[in-house]
């Protein structure tokens, strides 16, 4: 199996770096960005197995990133490709994420190992 390619968009540097390191240790190839605007052209030009995206970025929201991704992916693909991570998991956010079919993980993660597994695509959505 090829090593999974993961894109992380997260503006909290400690979280971004730690996740990157952890996932790399588990054999993934990881690109990481703090800014949504910088990440958008990259995700449009490169193929990823998983995109982990923070909701409250400094410049844009995670949903804005997903909207941009619609240029390249179908709604179904977006649902399985994107994982939203957020500290503000209100019902509103959950509802909106459900529209895209995206999974939402609240920060802090309840179970770090499990979260990493999800990012690594080793667990399919149906198992969650």
């Amino acid at each position: 199996m090829n090593s999974p390619r993961i894109l992380i968009i997260e503006d909290e540097l400690l979280i971004q770096r730690s996740l990157k390191k952890m996932l790399e240790k588990k054999g993934a190839v990881v690109d990481a960005f703090s800014s949504g605007r910088e990440a958008i052209p990259v995700l449009l030009s490169k193929d990823y197995d998983r995109i982990v995206c923070d909701l409250m970025l400094q410049d844009v929201t995670g949903f804005d990133v997903i909207e941009e991704a619609k240029q390249k992916y179908s709604l179904k693909e977006i649902g399985s490709l994107f994982i939203i991570i957020t500290a503000y998991s209100s019902q509103q956010v959950l509802d909106k994420a459900a529209q895209y079919g995206c999974q939402v993980l609240s920060k802090p993660f309840e179970d770090l190992e499990r979260a990493l597994d999800i990012f690594l695509c080793t667990k399919e959505k149906s198992e969650l």
């Binding site: 909290e12 730690s18 920060k107």
Partner: peptide
């Protein structure tokens, strides 16, 4: 909680 989570992860 976000920065704390970062510290925790790191």
């Amino acid at each position: 909680s976000n920065p704390l989570f970062g510290v925790n992860l790191a």
